[in-house]
Every structure is written in structure tokens, then in C-alpha cells.
Write a protein that binds this DNA or RNA. Structure first.
Lengths: 218, 218
DNA sequence: ACTTCCTTCAGTGTATACACAAATCCCCGC
DNA sequence: GCGGGGATTTGTGTATACACTGAAGGAAGT
């Protein structure tokens, strides 16, 4: 693994998991020493992060970007646009058997949610497989790319919300509805189910959202 | 201006204007010598280009990406999704006077189109101002960013088509219709007008498209 | 003649040194 | 005591040297 990849992954995780608070300035020498690499690969990592919008390269050093409540609204507005269309396209072009299988698994998801850590991870993986199946079904590299770049920010937002078992169970049912609509080849329904799911998701995030306090070092 | 910015702008223009054929491998030492800079800033430029999708960093050296006919279809599919929604949002949130003014100017655009080079540039600027006005009106940084990253590829596609005066005149009328719908505050109509415009645009591109032959150097 | 191994080399990945810009801080003058 | 100007420090931008890897070409053996 290249040093720049390692630095990118480390910094990306630190930002997504809110270990690096928004507003933190990432100095090249400091971070390169922390990660045990040189400035050159670190700069590449910072460039990638800034391209994704996780950091912003303002005048002196790059700073970790913040996510405000307005940002979350904007994020979900774009998400609704992209994923709604993606679900519709998947219903038109996707393989019914694939999504039927996913739907069946999603109906059994509540058993995973109540469980401990590994079972919960299995649930998240399942949702991830639904996303991947949609990505593959739409056969549109540009749309898939746009959604991928969105998901980075969404993971960050998800960490802000309290994902209780109740919400996760409901979300699983919503996902199952999306998979069912796609499997049935109903684009309008798939888009509507996605819209419903995203609105409920957004409501939950905004309801349980607790502002992260910035950890001012020093 | 930084050396990396200069390199980025130069390479970006070379690719967009099809002076660098798809499949061309951009070697770091070669390009850095050609542009009169060092490898370090050039690498940053190549990184940005690859992030945008203008180049792909496969194993050995980065290569200029190709745009196939399927790519154009996918590109316009995403474009329809994003710009349709953007037009609708602009109709909801935009300032009527701004778009009314743009509509009036677009109605006079045919006078510019017939003219020589500078007048044609004035027309392209006018269309660009409409795009910028929509970007500003939607007040959604993520959506605006997604559209910006798309436009790079669209400029590249536009260079493939023969933009005759007839098509440009029709396009101006379609743009005027979009501006009118936004000014009138009619989201559905604005989205529909955008859809119509993009489909006509796509048809024109595909009808007049001439495949670029790759210039194999040596 | 074909295959295989070794050599060589082109090219990237990384580290480091140097140059330059900006911000801060201290000292001197008032 | 306060303000201004210069030095110092901090950090980025760029260049270059070195290491490593993967590929291509040739030579030798079968």
C-alpha cells in the first residue's frame, strides 16, 4: 500500500469518525510526522480530501470542513435527486432476481439489528449490498460516481445521529420496499419509496442530532 | 499563479479541446519538461484531472480518458437528473427579475449567433450566465458542485458536435423558455423545459457527431 | 524455434532540501 | 506606555535525488 493511500485512509477515517473536529487545521509537517510519512505523499492525500470536500484548502493549511444543519438539508436534497433517479433506473434495467433476493434478506434484517456488534455490522453490509446492486443495475458510471462521492459525506452525517434499534428496523423495512419495487420493475414506485425513505431518514437525523463540540487542542 | 495551477489549466485545455487524444499516456517527466515545470506540481495537476475523470490513473502513468457514445448517453442522463432538479429549485427559490432579464437577453441572442467570433463568444457567455444564475438560485452547494463537475465533460462533448447557427438559434429559444419558467416560478414547467432542451441537445450531438481519430504519435 | 531467466531501463513513489510568503513577535523609537 | 518596523518563525510551493517496481528485451538452454 502506498504511503499516500495510507495517509488518505487514515485522515479520511479520522474526519468521518469525528476524531478530527471541523475547523482543525491540518498542517503538512505535523500530519506527516504523526502518520510517519513524508510531506509529498501527505500532500496528495490532502488534495484528494479537499477534492471530496472533506477538507478545504484555504490560504494557510487545509481545514476540516464543517457540516451544518443547512448542509444536511442540501446533502439530502441532492441525495433525493440522485438516488430517486437511480432507483427508478434500477427498476427499469436491473435484474429482478437480484433485488428479490435482497428484499428477502432485508425482511430478515430485524433479527440482526437486535443483536450485538457483529450482527449489526452484517446489517450495514446488507444495506451496502443494496446500494452496490443499484449502482450496478443503473449501468451509468457518472451517476454511480456522483452517488459514491455523496456517500462519503452521508457516512459522516450518520455518525451524528443516534441509530437506535427502532429506527434501524423501520429503515430496513423501507429498504425492503425499495428492493421490492425495483424487483417488480416499477420505476415510479421505486422512486417514491426512495423519497419516503430519505425523508424519514432526514427527519430522524435532525431529530436526534447532537452538535459535536469542537475539541480545541491547547 | 502556481505552477501546478498552470499545468492543470494547460492539460485540462489540451484534453477538452481534443489536442490530447484519448488513450494518450501522460508521462510525468515528459509532461513536466513540456510545460517547463517540475514533476511535483505536475503530479498534483494530474491528480486533479484524474479526480475529475478527464484522465485515469491506471497502473503505469495516467491516460487521457475516452468518451464513447454510451458515455454521452450516461452523461446526459445524469445531466437531465441534476439540471432538471436545479431548474425546478431555481423556479421555487430564484429571483424572478434576474431570470426575466436573462430571458429578454436570450430572446435577442439570434442577433449574436449570426455574427462573427466575438459575438458568438458573447452568446456562450450569456448561456454561462444563465447556468451561474441557476447555480446561485438553488442555494445548494452540493448540487452546484455536482453540476460543475459535469460541465467539464460536457464542454468536451460539445467540441464533438457541429454547432451550426440553426441549432444555436433553437437552443437560445429553449434556454429562454427555461428562464421564463423560472422567472414565472413554475418548477414543473422549468423542469420540463430543461428536459426538452437536453433531449434536443443530445439528439443534435449524436446526429452531428464525428468520431475523433486518435493521433498515434510515432 | 520456442521458452525461460536474467538484465536493464523507464517510470513512478517517496524523501528531503531550498525558496518564498505571510504572520507574529520583539525591540526600538517616540 | 504605545506604535511601527524589521527579524524570526512557521508553513507552503517547487525542485531534485534516490529507491523500488514492473515491463521489455536479449541471451542461453532445450
Amino acid at each position: 500500500m502506498r504511503a499516500s493511500d495510507k495517509a488518505y485512509a487514515a485522515l479520511r477515517d479520522d474526519i468521518i469518525e469525528w476524531r478530527l473536529a471541523p475547523g482543525t487545521v491540518l498542517t503538512e509537517v505535523e500530519q506527516s510526522e504523526r502518520l510517519g510519512i513524508s510531506r509529498t505523499p501527505l500532500r496528495e492525500a490532502l488534495g484528494r480530501l479537499s477534492a471530496e470536500g472533506l477538507t478545504a484548502a484555504g490560504g494557510r493549511g487545509v481545514v476540516v470542513t464543517d457540516i451544518s444543519l443547512e448542509d444536511i438539508d442540501e446533502l439530502f436534497e441532492l441525495r433525493e435527486t440522485l438516488e430517486g433517479r437511480a432507483a427508478a433506473l434500477a427498476a427499469e434495467r436491473g435484474d429482478a432476481a437480484t433485488f428479490e433476493q435482497l428484499r428477502r434478506e432485508l425482511l430478515h434484517a430485524p433479527e440482526l439489528i437486535g443483536g450485538a456488534e457483529p450482527a449489526l455490522q452484517a446489517y450495514y453490509d446488507l444495506v451496502g449490498r443494496l446500494d452496490a446492486a443499484i449502482d450496478a443495475a443503473i449501468s451509468n458510471a457518472y451517476l454511480a460516481q456522483a452517488m459514491r462521492s455523496l456517500r462519503v459525506h452521508l457516512v459522516r452525517v450518520r455518525r451524528l445521529a443516534a441509530d437506535d434499534a427502532e429506527r434501524l428496523t423501520a429503515a430496513a423495512a423501507e429498504h425492503a420496499a425499495i428492493a421490492e419495487a425495483i424487483a417488480a420493475g416499477k420505476p415510479r414506485l421505486a422512486e417514491a419509496a426512495t423519497t419516503v425513505h430519505l425523508h424519514r431518514s432526514l427527519s430522524h437525523v435532525k431529530a436526534t442530532h447532537v452538535p459535536h463540540q469542537k475539541e480545541h487542542h491547547g
